[in-house]
Amino acid sequence: MDYVIQIIFSFIATACFGVIFNAPVKAIPYCGVVGSIGWLIYYEFGMHGVDEVKASFAGAFVVAILAQALARKFRMPMIIYSVSGIIPLVPGGVAYNTMRNIVELDYALGMQNGMRVFMISGAIAMGIVFAEVIMQILFSMLRKGKTSIQSFVKVKR
């Protein structure tokens, strides 16, 4: 029952963020699915006692892989799916607590929470970048097409 609630509400939350970020209407349900799966992984890791930084990394990694796959399928930029997908993982609550601690002049707790925000958002970004790189290597092995980052790096040199 608990899982059903988590799945439904993470789907609603992510799809609603798709609306707020003005994603194309056709893409919004897929955004919801991506976000829901990402949250479920984060939640499952959390339930098994893995700390939030590693759980965020795992969630973001899966979100980015799904986003890449959908982006290739529908020929849209990956950001459409990943932006709303990572929203449930983003440390909004901790960021809020940080700011609240700081404005209440509790600097020690504020710094502690601030470092948590930094580590979690770093883990999310790393998860996305790792997934992107791995998918690119995979796809360039599968077929000889240039991917965006690779072709970009080649031009710069």
Binding site: A13, F17, I20, V83, I86, I87, V90, P91, G92, G93, A95, Y96, V117, S121, G122, I124, A125, M126, I128, V129, I149
Partner: peptide, 24 residues
């Protein structure tokens, strides 16, 4: 209540994108 309601405003996406740009 407040955390849930400010989530649409919280710059979580900006923070993540910032770290991602730094990494790239």
């Amino acid at each position: 209540i407040i955390i849930g309601s400010v989530m649409p405003l919280v710059p979580g996406l900006l923070i993540t994108n910032a770290v991602r740009d730094l990494m790239a």
